[in-house]
Structure formats: C-alpha cells, structure tokens
C-alpha cells in the first residue's frame, strides 16, 4: 500500500470530501469496476453530525480512497447500489447499526428485532 504523508491525522489513505447531494455524482465519476475496487460502506457519528463513508481502492496506484459526506440526523441518505452493485448489503448493515435512513433499506437486516436499536449511534438517540 502506498504511503502518503500524514496530513490532518490521516496515515495511509486519501480522502475526498463531498456533500450528500453530490455524493452520487462523485462516486459515478470515480467508480469503474476495472480500475477501482469497492471495499465497503461505513458511517461515523461524532455526537453532533453523522457521516456516510464509502471506501474504494485504486488498483493501479494501490491507494485506499475514502469518499465521505456529512449529514444531519434523520436526513434521508441516497443509496449508491445502482452504481456500485454490491453496496446494498453493507448499506443495510450500517443503516441498522446507526439508524440511518438509507434509500431502499430493509429493516432488521443485520440486527434482530429484539436487539437494541442503532447501537453505534452517539448523539440524538433514537427512541426505543
């Protein structure tokens, strides 16, 4: 993996910051199955705001790429599973873990109905 100089506390991957409205175009721009490997979906909650994160790997330069977009609690997040086909599984997973309202999500895909709701969420707790 290519080493990048640590900037803003980031060690070995590069970041593209965008907004929720533009994230789909951005990913459409970047993603090409032959050159870019889709790694996964992640989310992050710092207590005030949430972030949706998509991880990719540029195959030629071997650099891990993070595309992220911040959004407010309760905001509807677009799905990218029509651009990146396998994305739906992990989108539904983080939708369950963070209580994110992702387009086309299936309830209780990753958690059982009895388990605590949105266990990884920090701020703005969901009601029981």
């Amino acid at each position: 993996m290519k080493e990048l100089p640590p900037e803003k506390g980031i060690r070995n991957f590069s970041v593209i910051e965008t907004t929720l409205e533009k994230i789909r175009e951005k990913i459409r721009e970047i993603y090409d199955p032959k050159k870019v490997h889709y790694i996964g979906v992640d989310a992050y909650d710092d207590g005030n705001k949430m972030e949706i994160r998509y991880w990719f790997l540029k195959k030629e330069s071997n650099v891990v790429l993070l595309v992220k977009a911040p959004f407010d609690y309760g905001e509807k997040v677009p799905s990218i599973s029509d651009i990146v086909k396998p994305a739906f599984v992990q989108e539904w997973e983080i939708a369950d873990l963070f209580g994110i309202n992702i387009e086309g999500r299936v309830e209780n895909f990753f958690l059982t109905p009895e388990s605590p709701r949105a266990p990884l969420r920090r701020g703005d707790k969901l009601g029981k």
Binding site: P6, G9, I10, R11, N12, I39, W55, L57, V64
Partner: peptide, 14 residues
C-alpha cells in the same frame, strides 16, 4: 492518534 487502514488477506479474502 491517527486515522489508518489496513488490508489483510484472510483465508476468505480481503
């Protein structure tokens, strides 16, 4: 204190 990633080849893949 940094943000970092690691990819490892498990028996089942990345």
């Amino acid at each position: 204190k940094y943000e970092a990633v690691c990819r490892n080849e498990a028996p089942r893949g990345e």
